[in-house]
Simulated scan of single mutants.
Amino acid sequence: MKVIIIDDEKRSRRVLRSILEEACDGINSILEASNLIDGVELIKDNNPNIVFLDVEMPKHSGLEILDFFKDKTINFQIIFTTAYEQYAVEAFKLSAIDYVLKPIDEKELVKAFEKAKQVINDNQIKSKLENLEKALHQLSLNKIALEVPKGIIFVSHEDIMYFEADGVYTKVHLENGKTELICRTLKHFTEQLQNQPIFYKPHRSYLINLKFMKELVKKDGFHIVMNNLSTIPIARDRKDEFIQMVNRVFN
């Protein structure tokens, strides 16, 4: 964890550094600056986790720090150090994680540090979860999650031959010959895959992958024969629509 101390008083910087080194775990780097301008440069060059920032300094007050980051994201925690309690309200307006009054009390400083550390850890966890969610969302564009008794299996859309309604369950017939019984209705999968044009519902009890059609036969109505020789009926109200579609595409 990187820490930067920005304070015009050398003694204050020394006290802060001493407490941080002796009482605060997880710090591997402590840098110092004696004014806000130099401190901002240190922040931009070193990407710290926590910045201890004095309020009363020559030329630029610590409260002006956000003026130097107008086009950048503040991804570090700010802990203000000040001899004047009236600055506390202004500090929190700037989204500071905490403030510590001078002369520095070790317990108060450690408390503020631990508070900042917890926020950093929480943000890191949140970031990891968001990245995981993005990865899973990308996966969902090409695969479907099937909840089976032993857990969840992730199957490519390309490997699903067809879905078959079985009461409140659905049988998922896979290209490899396996069939998975899923505790979901066919409606669930129909809605989930409605934006996948490769899937078509010729009958209220079936949702098929058009890739695996082998033959269209007329026998007691129209039926689709799949690659595994399963016969899927075409509902009367879907027959004309389906035949027209086939004729437009293949003729």
Results as ranks from 00 to 15, higher is better:
residue 3 V to E: 13
residue 3 V to D: 12
residue 5 I to Q: 09
residue 5 I to G: 10
residue 7 D to C: 12
residue 8 D to A: 07
residue 8 D to M: 09
residue 8 D to P: 05
residue 10 K to Q: 15
residue 12 S to L: 11
residue 13 R to D: 05
residue 14 R to Y: 14
residue 14 R to G: 13
residue 15 V to A: 12
residue 16 L to V: 10
residue 16 L to C: 10
residue 19 I to N: 11
residue 20 L to P: 09
residue 20 L to W: 09
residue 27 I to E: 12
residue 28 N to H: 14
residue 34 S to M: 12
residue 36 L to K: 05
residue 46 N to F: 07
residue 48 P to G: 11
residue 48 P to F: 06
residue 49 N to H: 15
residue 49 N to D: 15
residue 49 N to R: 13
residue 52 F to W: 09
residue 60 H to V: 06
residue 61 S to G: 04
residue 62 G to V: 02
residue 62 G to L: 04
residue 63 L to E: 07
residue 64 E to M: 04
residue 65 I to W: 02
residue 66 L to D: 06
residue 67 D to M: 01
residue 68 F to V: 01
residue 74 I to Q: 04
residue 74 I to P: 00
residue 76 F to T: 04
residue 76 F to Y: 11
residue 76 F to E: 04
residue 77 Q to G: 02
residue 81 T to W: 00
residue 81 T to G: 01
residue 85 E to P: 07
residue 85 E to L: 07
residue 87 Y to V: 07
residue 88 A to Y: 11
residue 92 F to R: 08
residue 92 F to G: 05
residue 93 K to E: 15
residue 95 S to R: 13
residue 97 I to L: 11
residue 102 K to C: 06
residue 103 P to V: 03
residue 107 K to S: 12
residue 108 E to R: 14
residue 109 L to F: 03
residue 110 V to T: 04
residue 111 K to I: 00
residue 111 K to Y: 07
residue 112 A to F: 01
residue 113 F to D: 02
residue 114 E to I: 00
residue 119 V to H: 12
residue 125 I to G: 01
residue 126 K to P: 01
residue 129 L to V: 06
residue 133 E to R: 14
residue 134 K to R: 10
residue 137 H to G: 03
residue 138 Q to C: 00
residue 138 Q to V: 04
residue 139 L to A: 10
residue 142 N to H: 09
residue 145 A to T: 03
residue 145 A to V: 04
residue 149 P to R: 01
residue 152 I to F: 08
residue 157 H to T: 02
residue 157 H to C: 03
residue 159 D to L: 06
residue 162 Y to S: 09
residue 163 F to H: 06
residue 164 E to P: 04
residue 170 T to Y: 09
residue 171 K to P: 02
residue 173 H to V: 15
residue 180 E to R: 02
residue 180 E to K: 06
residue 185 T to C: 03
residue 187 K to Y: 01
residue 190 T to A: 09
residue 191 E to Y: 01
residue 192 Q to C: 08
residue 193 L to Q: 00
residue 194 Q to I: 08
residue 195 N to W: 04
residue 198 I to A: 09
residue 198 I to T: 13
residue 204 R to Q: 14
residue 205 S to A: 10
residue 207 L to A: 02
residue 209 N to P: 08
residue 210 L to G: 13
residue 213 M to P: 07
residue 214 K to H: 14
residue 214 K to T: 06
residue 215 E to H: 11
residue 220 D to F: 11
residue 221 G to P: 09
residue 223 H to G: 08
residue 223 H to T: 10
residue 224 I to Q: 03
residue 225 V to D: 03
residue 225 V to P: 02
residue 227 N to Q: 14
residue 227 N to M: 09
residue 229 L to R: 14
residue 229 L to A: 13
residue 230 S to Y: 05
residue 230 S to I: 00
residue 230 S to P: 00
residue 231 T to W: 01
residue 232 I to E: 11
residue 234 I to Q: 06
residue 235 A to P: 10
residue 235 A to F: 08
residue 239 K to T: 15
residue 239 K to S: 12
residue 241 E to R: 12
residue 244 Q to V: 06
residue 245 M to F: 08
residue 245 M to E: 09
residue 249 V to C: 07
residue 250 F to R: 10
